[in-house]
Amino acid sequence: MTVNVLFAHNDVNWDVYKGTLEKALTDAGVPANLSRDLTPEEVDYIVYAPSSPLQDFTPYTRAKAVLSLWAGVETVTGNATLNMPLARMVDFGLTQGMTEWVTGHVLRHHLDIDYTLRHQDGDWLPRVPPLARSRRVSVLGLGALGSACAQALAGLGFPVSGWSRSPKQIDGVSCYSGDAGLKATLEQADILVLLLPFTPATENVLNAESLSWMPQGACVINPGRGQLIDDDALLDALDDGKIARATLDVFRVEPLPAEHAYWAHPNVTVTPHIASETRPETASEVIAENIRRGEAGEPFLHLVDRGLGY
């Protein structure tokens, strides 16, 4: 029996995903009609991005699940009309992309590459960084992305600690949870990586008080969510030297406004939300597998806990 799959995203992404989704569904053995023009009453599954114009799910009475193309779903979890299962995107491409970006920027700060680039003026200034074993890295958020990044950094020889709301056990990583655990994790953060989801409980997790717990001259890397940081507190910490450098990929307002202080700050690197994009080929495989599972009566992958918000 053919299933009807509504692609609820924009024109550009339809052009990108149409072929890969059709192939993935065929490879998964799912006969499917993939379209942008289905009436609500005939839709079995919704392939979705939270930025989609589709915000009222009430008419989709037959749909079995909403399958997000994004890892972040905080803007849709509170939608009162969404009463069916919601799955977020967790896939190899997203995880690998994030791991590569985080590892690259941790190494950049660890090796002080920015210092080297700033002093290309003819002076021979030997500046030997410590070995990784002497640079402590902390990761806030130990979900799929945070765990992968923490393990990759531990594999390079960094002492890695991580914090999450609920207790976790990860080989090679010292794991903490709870309020006391957050303070302990930040106290060990020569380099801090933020990979928490945005929820009311995580907003401004990095603020004036929590920044004060970090070692003098620490570095902050945020590929998670802009709302995790109190911007004024971070700028103050950068100005007084408590924080030496920050690399920021996500912001409260995107694109980051041209007048924002981050652009001009000499110790801030801004990147345009590129830490990890969803890769159509691998994301399509996850979507197809969830549709196959739905048709076979098996549990969906990566379901969102609406109470927690992720």
Rank of each mutant, 00 (worst) to 15 (best):
D230P: 04
P200K: 12
T202I: 05
G224R: 05
S68P: 06
V250A: 08
A65F: 01
I113G: 01
E203Y: 09
R88A: 03
A261E: 14
L131F: 10
D305W: 15
V173D: 02
D239E: 14
V16H: 12
E295S: 10
P280T: 02
T26N: 11
G97F: 07
A28K: 11
R133C: 02
P215F: 09
T39A: 14
T185Q: 13
D123N: 13
R136E: 00
R108C: 04
A283D: 01
W163V: 03
E254N: 06
T116Q: 15
L248K: 08
S147V: 00
E259M: 10
D190I: 02
L182D: 04
P255R: 04
L21D: 13
I191Y: 03
H119W: 04
T185R: 07
L107M: 14
R165I: 08
A296I: 03
G93R: 08
C219Y: 15
D240Q: 05
A237W: 13
Y176N: 12
R245F: 09
L301C: 05
S276F: 09
A184T: 11
V12P: 00
P197V: 04
V128R: 10
P167K: 00
L94H: 13
D112V: 03
E298Q: 11
F7G: 10
L303W: 06
L131N: 13
S134Q: 15
N290S: 07
L228K: 11
T20P: 06
K168F: 01
C219H: 15
N290M: 07
N79Y: 00
S147R: 02
E254V: 06
L111T: 09
K18T: 11
